[in-house]
Structures are given as structure tokens and as C-alpha cells.
């Protein structure tokens, strides 16, 4: 399938000499949710800002639906909605006016019906005549989303949408993102919360120090890098492990009540059957047993360390 956003050899060096992006290549498929995951200062905002036209690239190119973002900026920008990282809003505008402004700015003719529906979806309809400075932080964030959606974009960039947002609003935000994807919008969000990428993304790109370390399906990423752990609760705690279990290099918890076996689920021979057999032969009785998968956080830490 043709990608909706295509980034080739993109680099950015700021006036001060800091290289914020290093030869980034990335293709984004229509309709997907892509999470760009990286610590503060990784270059996430810079990448988004270049695509949206706020920052000039030093080299490389970006196309949106086949149009170049520099030579054909009118086509590309009218397809893009941007929710910035900072809560930047005028103080005295009303919610309704600021959305109408955004829609017009992006070249769409007024459509009060659409804006009303949008405000209702964002639970802001009751606040439509309120001045922006009277709104809470969470509402301001939603107004920014409303502004970004006011011109019915095909691609939505959310720059750290849930930074400093309470748990409930974060869940709302995730639900909103999923609804938007269902309506066909491609969503690129940046985050430094692993749980966020894990919870809503289809694909995850890991970015650090201006380099895109990898991009992969979330599942494949877990598959590729995720170790699995088999955790076994013992009926009776033991002081030490019998020697017969040493081939599996198990972890014994401090209280002696839990065994942890770390294995790679993708190899032909995981050693689980043998382990269970050996446990039975050692006369250990299992009370409970479960497996866990390593989180993106662990994957991420490994990647950044390895880099």
C-alpha cells in the first residue's frame, strides 16, 4: 500500500549547531496509529514540526500523500492536523471562535454543524462560549485537539497528548484516538510513556538522540525483543534450589516461595516441559503458575543501552 507519510534521509541541525535529527527514514501507512517513543530531547517534536512546516529541514525530504511538504505545502498542510505539545492558546478567544478560526485558516469553508458535532464529541459543547483562559488544563488540551480536527484532516499529529494529564483523561484520549482511527484518520503520536504506545499503537518507532532506532509492529516488536517469564508459586517455600534444576538458571525469590524462569518463546525448544518434569522429580509442589511478557519499557531500555 502507498504510504501516506514518507520521510527520507531527514536531518536537522539547529542554528546553535545541535543535530536534532540524523538521517531519519520512515514510512507511515494510511489509517494506522504510529507511536514515536523516545525520551525527552530525542527529536520527536522536531520531526513533527518539520512535517507540519514549523521547522525547516536541513536535508532530506518528506511527502504527504505523494506531495512534497516544501514545494506543495498547500496540499500537504491542508491534510494535516497538529496538536502541539505545549498548551498554546490565546487567552481571550472563545472555544467556538478559536475552532472557527482554525477551520478557516486551513482553507475550509465554515460548517457550524461539523464544529458542533466535534465539540460534542470532545465534551466541550457546553463550553463553546467560554473564554479559553477560564478552562482547565484538560479542557484546553481538548480544545487543541478540536482545533487540529476542525478542518477534517486525514493525518493527525499528537505531540505528547497525555503528558501531565490525569489517568481518566488519558483513558478518554486513548478512546478518542481509537475512534478517530476507525473514521480513517492516520494518527502519529509521540510519547515517552511506554504504556501509552503499548495501549494504542499499531506500530512503534523508537527514537533516541535524533536517530530512529527501529520501527516495527507493536506485536512483532514484542515478539522480536520480548522475553517471556514463567513464574511459579510454590506450595511450600524452599531454602535453596536442588542441583537438578540448575540447567534452567532459575531465579528464586527472597522468601523462597517463587521461581522465575526467563526464556525466549520464539526458539524451537523453550525447555518448559523439561523444567516442569524436573520440578516434579525434585518433589516441589506448584501452587500457581503464570507467564508474563516483557513490556516495551524493558525493550526500550535495552535498545537505548545497546545504542
Amino acid at each position: 500500500m502507498q504510504s501516506i507519510v514518507s520521510i527520507s534521509n531527514l536531518s536537522k541541525t539547529y542554528a546553535g549547531g545541535h543535530q536534532a535529527l540524523k538521517d531519519v527514514n520512515l514510512d507511515i501507512a494510511p489509517g494506522e496509529i504510529l507511536a514515536l517513543l523516545g525520551p525527552n530531547g530525542a527529536g520527536k517534536t522536531t520531526l513533527i514540526s518539520i512535517i507540519c512546516g514549523i521547522v525547516k529541514a536541513s536535508s532530506g525530504s518528506v511527502t504527504v500523500a505523494g506531495h512534497d511538504i516544501v514545494t506543495d505545502y498547500r496540499s500537504t498542510r491542508s491534510m494535516i492536523g497538529l496538536v502541539p505539545q505545549e498548551l498554546t492558546l490565546g487567552a481571550f478567544d472563545t472555544v467556538w471562535n478559536t475552532l472557527s478560526f482554525s477551520r478557516g485558516l486551513f482553507g475550509k469553508k465554515p460548517d457550524p454543524g461539523y464544529l458542533e458535532q466535534l465539540l460534542r464529541d470532545l465534551s466541550l459543547w457546553g463550553k463553546k462560549d467560554s473564554e479559553l483562559m477560564t478552562l482547565s488544563g484538560g479542557m484546553k488540551r481538548r480544545v487543541l485537539i478540536g482545533k487540529a480536527l476542525s478542518h477534517e484532516p486525514a493525518v493527525l499529529f499528537l505531540d505528547e497528548p497525555t503528558a501531565g494529564v490525569d489517568v481518566e483523561l488519558r483513558k478518554d484520549m486513548w478512546a478518542l484516538v481509537r475512534r478517530l482511527r476507525e473514521s480513517g484518520v492516520t494518527i502519529i503520536l509521540t510519547t515517552h510513556y511506554i504504556e501509552e504506545a503499548e495501549a494504542i499503537a499499531d506500530r512503534v518507532g523508537v527514537i533516541n538522540n535524533g536517530e530512529l532506532l527501529l520501527v516495527d509492529d507493536k506485536q512483532a516488536l514484542m515478539h522480536k525483543l520480548g522475553k517471556r517469564q514463567l513464574i511459579m508459586e510454590l506450595e511450600e517455600a524452599v531454602g535453596a534450589l536442588p542441583d537438578s534444576l540448575s540447567p534452567w538458571s532459575l531465579d528464586l525469590s527472597a522468601d523462597g516461595g517463587r521461581l522465575t524462569y526467563t526464556y525466549d518463546p520464539h526458539t524451537a525448544h523453550t525447555g518448559i516441559s523439561g523444567l516442569l518434569q524436573a520440578i516434579r522429580e525434585a518433589d516441589l509442589v506448584l501452587k500457581d503458575l503464570k507467564t508474563t511478557q516483557s513490556s516495551l519499557e524493558e525493550i526500550f531500555v535495552n535498545l537505548v543501552k545497546g545504542n
Partner: peptide, 16 residues
């Protein structure tokens, strides 16, 4: 003013 408050980002990212 928009430069100062940061709201200029929207004008910069718009097809204008």
C-alpha cells in the same frame, strides 16, 4: 503576540 504566546504555530502549519 502570537509569536510571544506560541499560537503562531498554527499559522505556520496552515496552508497559507
Amino acid at each position: 503576540f502570537p509569536k510571544f504566546t506560541g499560537t503562531i504555530y498554527e499559522v505556520m502549519s496552515a496552508p497559507v
